[in-house]
Amino acid sequence: MPVVKMQRSIAAPIEVVFDAYTDHAALALVPGILSATVVRPGDTEPNGLGAIREVNAGIAWFREEITAFDRPVLMEYRIRKALPPLQHRLGRVEFESTSPGTTLITWTSEFDSPPGIGFVFSPASKLIASAAFSWVLKCLDDRIGS
């Protein structure tokens, strides 16, 4: 099972970083992402627990459900449907205030390798996911970090 873990410190308060990361509309500001929409709002807020959102990145499309939402320290999601097909176990994004005005984001995602081609899929999927997560976090930092 491939696991991708990425961390980045952003020079902004935890509440600002959490809100910026979890805002689906802001995800569409990342170059390479064509659209990000909430197709079902969350139980208490649009991007919160129970929300289902779709992300179109041109070469890939995802429908994900927010499965945990603990403002401002945790968001978990699970990709329920994807093109190309993807077997996703867990996405977990943790936010930690490491000093006044600085937030550490830890983004972990777990995938299952497709039967029969896991020996090829696992390394490639880890590289692609690592690059994508790094890019999203860099763009977030560029947008809100100081």
Rank of each mutant, 00 (worst) to 15 (best):
L90Y: 00
W135H: 15
D70A: 04
S9D: 15
P2H: 11
E15G: 05
V136D: 13
F95Y: 09
F18S: 09
P115C: 01
W135M: 08
E65N: 04
L49G: 04
R8M: 12
D43E: 15
E65I: 10
E96H: 06
G116I: 02
T22S: 11
K5R: 15
P123N: 04
L74K: 09
D141A: 12
V73H: 08
A129I: 05
L34A: 15
I79M: 12
R143S: 14
F69S: 03
S130M: 10
I128N: 00
L74E: 09
R71C: 06
V73Q: 05
E96K: 14
P46F: 04
M1W: 10
E65A: 09
P41F: 12
A68D: 13
F111L: 14
V16I: 10
F95D: 11
E15F: 01
T103F: 02
S130I: 03
S109V: 15
R63G: 04
H88N: 14
A25C: 03
L127F: 06
G50P: 05
E76C: 11
P123E: 05
A28H: 00
I59Y: 01
V17S: 10
R8F: 08
F62A: 12
P2N: 08
E76G: 00
I79Q: 07
A124P: 01
E96V: 05
I66D: 01
V3F: 03
R63F: 01
A36M: 02
T106D: 07
I66A: 07
N56I: 01
R71W: 03
V17F: 00
V73F: 04
F111K: 05
I14Y: 05
A82D: 01
V73K: 06
V39P: 01
A36F: 00
V120C: 06
P123D: 04
P115H: 11
I33E: 11
D141V: 05
N56P: 00
F62G: 06
T106S: 13
R80Y: 00
R8D: 13
V16D: 08
A51N: 02
T103Y: 04
M75T: 06
H24W: 11
F62E: 03
A51S: 15
P100L: 05
A124G: 02
P100Y: 09
R143M: 08
F119A: 13
V38P: 00
I33T: 07
T44R: 14
I105D: 05
R8H: 07
A60M: 12
S109M: 13
P114E: 11
L74G: 02
G32W: 09
P84K: 07
L137M: 11
A82E: 01
A28K: 02
A124Y: 09
I105M: 03
D23E: 15
P13K: 14
A36I: 01
V55W: 03
T22N: 09
N56A: 10
I52S: 00
L49N: 04
E15V: 11
P84T: 05
S134G: 15
G101T: 09
I128L: 07
S146H: 12
P72C: 05
E45M: 08
R80T: 10
I105W: 00
L49T: 02
T108G: 06
E110H: 08
E65P: 02
A57H: 01
G116R: 06
L83P: 00
V4E: 04
S9N: 14
S113R: 11
W135D: 10
